[in-house]
Write a protein that binds this DNA or RNA. Structure first.
Length: 285
DNA sequence: AACTTTGTCAACCGCCTACGT
DNA sequence: TACGTAGGCGGTTGACAAAGT
């Protein structure tokens, strides 16, 4: 009773892992890989449940894990992403190579505790909302409410209006080189794949990574949204077109001041269609 | 030095979803 | 369709260490 459903067997060990157990798990995984975690304990000679093995591997033993303090860049990333997507730790972790959801969650929770304990002392931010639950500044741009679908359409159509979903991916923001089209290619390609297979998992976070000249944004966004709204998965050709339009637009700009987290789904939660710009990084608004 | 409080973080719990039967 | 299982996820716990008294 009280034991996890996967761990019903009598002699299942729990608690901290010993170095011997770690060694067994590492040896097994590096030799045979992991297809089915529930088989791993028996095959690796461990008195653990598969879930425990999985967790130990993912959070501690896998070779590409990154340990130690978060860098300032990582901290910024966490704060901004949390402002956009909330407690979706796995999602946030996917943007920080080598970091685990657990680690980020722990970091965030202890950071929150510190902030609560020391309210507003050494707080350099200007937005008073941030101390409540550390959202990034919420700035509404009503003229960018471009979704025109009804809630019914929302459930019927597999594809939300796309806007541009610029997911910064596994690299840090600094790695984005706007003079280099390769990065843009990658992002748009990722966008295409997501729209075909996985859109609903990612729709909450959309990034606009260009200068916030709103009239230009509006000009740019509207046609593309209309074009792709409810028409099914975006093709590679559409992505190429998006890229070309975007490149033209980028070239027309004189400066780049950051990227922006764009949460189009937010308004849909309450049944009201709206979009909001949630955060900017690294520039301030 | 002894004890208490606070902080950190690995690991667990229970819920959820996907998938197979 | 209903059910069972595996794995992914976020919330939470608790062991241990560090800091404070």
């Amino acid at each position: 009773m009280g034991h996890h459903s996967c761990c019903n067997q009598q002699k299942v060990k729990r608690g901290l892992w010993s170095p011997e157990e770690d060694e067994k798990l590492v040896r097994y995984i590096t030799t045979y890989g992991y297809g089915c975690w529930s088989e791993v304990p028996q095959k690796a000679g461990l008195q653990r449940c598969g879930k425990s093995c999985r967790l130990r591997w993912i959070n501690y033993l896998r070779p590409d894990i990154r340990r130690g303090r978060f860098t300032p860049e990582e901290e910024k990333m966490i704060i901004n992403l949390h402002g956009a997507v909330g407690n979706r730790w796995a999602h946030i972790a996917s943007h920080l190579p080598g970091r685990t959801d657990n680690e980020i969650k722990n970091y965030w929770n202890s950071w929150i505790k510190k902030k609560i304990r020391k309210p507003s002392s050494n707080n350099t931010r200007t937005n008073p909302n941030q101390d409540s639950h550390f959202t990034t500044p919420q700035i509404q741009f009503p003229y960018l409410n471009i979704s025109t679908k009804s809630p019914a359409q929302d459930t019927l159509l597999p594809l939300k209006p796309t806007t541009f979903m610029f997911d910064i991916g596994p690299t840090t923001a600094e790695a984005i080189d706007l003079t280099n089209n390769t990065r843009i290619d990658h992002i748009l390609h990722e966008n295409a794949l997501l729209n075909q297979e996985n859109w609903h998992h990612h729709h909450q976070q959309e990034m606009l990574q260009f200068t916030p000249l709103m009239e230009n944004l509006e000009n740019l966004m509207l046609p593309i949204d209309v074009q792709n709204s409810g028409t099914g998965p975006i093709s590679e050709a559409d992505c190429l077109q998006q890229r070309n339009e975007m490149n033209e637009w980028i070239e027309a700009q004189n400066s780049f001041s950051g990227y922006f987290l764009w949460d189009q789904a937010q308004g849909n939660i309450g049944g009201e269609e709206s979009s909001s710009l949630l955060a900017s990084y690294p520039s301030s608004l």
